[in-house]
Design a protein around this nucleic acid. Sequence first.
DNA 1: GCCTGCATCTCGCTA
DNA 2: TAGCGAGGTGCAGGC
Lengths: 225, 225
Amino acid sequence: MRLVVARCQVDYAGRLTAHLPMATRVLMIKADGSVLVHSDGGSYKPLNWMSPPCTLAEGTDADGTAEWVVTSTKTGDSLRILIEEVLSDSAHDLGIDPGLVKDGVEKHLQELLAEHPATLDEGLTLVRREFPTAIGPVDLMCRDSEGRSVAVEIKRRGEIDGVEQLTRYLELLNRDPLLAPVRGIFAAQAIKPQARVLATDRGIACAVVDYDALRGMDDVEARLF
Amino acid sequence: MRLVVARCQVDYAGRLTAHLPMATRVLMIKADGSVLVHSDGGSYKPLNWMSPPCTLAEGTDADGTAEWVVTSTKTGDSLRILIEEVLSDSAHDLGIDPGLVKDGVEKHLQELLAEHPATLDEGLTLVRREFPTAIGPVDLMCRDSEGRSVAVEIKRRGEIDGVEQLTRYLELLNRDPLLAPVRGIFAAQAIKPQARVLATDRGIACAVVDYDALRGMDDVEARLF
DNA sequence: GCCTGCATCTCGCTA
DNA sequence: TAGCGAGGTGCAGGC
């Protein structure tokens, strides 16, 4: 890992072209040759960058100004960095990173609802998780108290594309005479008004899920055993 | 901008929880207080981070180990960084960045097609760009040689969600007796087979757009004037 | 290997 | 300000 603070100008050419005027920035060069150009603001996204695999060539332009050219070995995209003045340049051996451990995403929500389907609709029982279809797996396939099929799509945040996804599943599932009629439940921790309107218009029920309450139910069960 | 290279352990708690075991990493602290934790690999995305607005509190934990706690002032998300050993710590005044100049995205494609609608379908003429509807603007509203309405959705890459989007527009537009019947054209530089199948199934035509050829047509016109 | 769907997405536009 | 679409998206999981 090499960290360079420098007054520089950056030009990217690839899927789009982008230009950064001369200014002081931080250049991060990772061990794999990838380069990040950061300024003192924004979020975690650099102003400009080159993803690996790529190669960095250090040289000088016609005026004798230091010039780095980073080229993607895959797509041919290029990043040209003209360096007017180097304020700091240091290298550090970081070793390989042990990596990130994540927990608590949509998968967990799916697990909890698979264990407590009745919180979505009274009498609902699980048939299977990740029910396979030709266009992808349905999060939960259930059966209601009257024995009818119910497809459940689970999202952390309920937005319009989730309703579209469930709509596609329902359309396909309802072509199967063994399953039809299949109704849908759109479950999320929060459902945006537009998504709710679209779902309702299509006869899809909405269920707002209380993640903490579900976890609580799980804990209670765990204590019983 | 402060750059710290240190052996550290990082724990994030917010939308999810994430843990980074003790290892050497680069900590980037921006002027707005946001923090990025980078390792020597991956792409431009940090292993962990805290977006602004947030505050950084430097202290020590029970064992006397240096501990940074970064807290989001908006969501309450927290990032806890335990620092075992500092290998480098430097600060730099970058000033405000003049910002990025982009060029060549989907907008340009839309402009070109608005000027040359006949490349999508013979005899097609433009009614207007960004034709407003209740659920968002249609990229191009056109009329064909027989005077019928044609809605065009433009994407750089033609994928399934683009077909869904156009389908929603068509459903709505066809409820308007002044416009109906409205047919659709899905235009993109490349259209994925799944998207093409879905579009065809719904009676939507597909048009593959040659960006370079369109630019060429534009250049020719420019030379004539 | 490509394809699909999620993301602590980020970012920019617009009503 | 919130909603919505696009991204040089990145990234993991499945086939």
